[in-house]
Design a protein around this nucleic acid. Structure first.
Length: 266
RNA sequence: CCCCUAGUAGA
């Protein structure tokens, strides 16, 4: 059964929805993972009716099944529906896990629903299980997206196990609140704490330089990334640099850069 | 490495 399940997921990953369903239909036995894989794949490709229908039909559901449905609503920015499913799962004695909360926080952030985000935060604390760094980071992100940088900072300060993603969330939040210098300072602080930047944190850093109109710093950081860290550039790096040139009015340089990057400009 | 998992550009 795991082999069939893996094939179903693979078909969805390459967009072959019909092939996936054919396998599900033909496989000799199915387990809850088979059903979950189908529901998740259907939902991800926009086949929501099919997803919901399978969810109704499936013989047994686990936490993942419920999380997939919450995610389906979250993907549509349907916060109220997502919360309803969250409450329904608990009525059916299926407890949430970290992923449940992360999914809910994500939709709160995307819809700037601060009061709901605070409510989810409280649920997390009430739940009593130990909160991992993924959930903490999702909380920071939610507060920042909801316009509450102060709360984001409060959460950030309390986290003991900050990793590069946690720092990047905070750096990005500062940049989005036009605190470019502060964002750069945090990048340095992160480095001082011995946490190594990765590609995503460099994208964030370069965009912070753009917000702060710091051309030299931005290009120096870009060189550091390429030469000291040996990271290959992704399109986002170039976009950030071009954006930086544009922000300070160096339009000729920006245009030149578009013509010279080793990627097809989109 | 059978299903749902946090941070990133431009608009």
């Amino acid at each position: 059964v795991p082999s069939w399940n893996a094939m179903i997921s693979t078909y969805f990953q390459v967009g072959q929805v019909e092939e996936a369903f054919k396998l599900f239909d033909e496989m000799p036995q199915r387990n809850v993972v088979s059903w979950n894989a189908m529901i998740s794949g259907f939902a991800e490709h926009g086949y929501l009716l099919e997803a919901f229908s399978l969810f109704q039909q499936m013989p047994e559901r686990n936490k993942v099944s419920w999380n997939i449905i919450i995610k389906a609503y979250a993907g549509l920015n349907k916060l109220n529906e997502a919360v309803q499913i969250f409450e329904q799962m608990q009525q059916e004695n299926v407890g949430p896990n970290a992923i449940t909360f992360i999914t809910l926080l994500d939709v709160c952030g995307n819809t700037a629903a601060l009061s709901s985000g605070i409510w989810v935060h409280r649920c997390i604390l009430d739940c009593g299980f130990e909160v991992d760094v993924h959930v903490w980071t999702a909380l920071i992100s939610m507060y920042a997206k909801c316009g509450c940088l102060d709360n984001a900072h409060l959460v950030f300060d309390k986290i003991l196990c900050k990793n590069v993603a946690t720092w990047t969330t905070m750096i990005s939040s500062c940049a989005q609140y036009s605190l470019g210098e502060k964002a750069l300072q945090m990048f340095k602080d992160m480095h001082l704490k011995g946490i190594m930047p990765d590609k995503v944190s460099f994208v964030t850093l370069l965009s912070a330089c753009s917000y702060a109109s710091l051309v030299d710093e931005g290009f120096n950081y870009y060189l550091t990334m390429s030469e000291a860290y040996n990271f290959a550039s992704v399109p986002e790096h170039y976009t950030s640099l071009i954006d930086l040139l544009g922000h300070v009015g160096w339009l000729d340089e920006a245009e030149k850069m578009i013509l010279h990057i080793p990627l097809q400009p989109n």
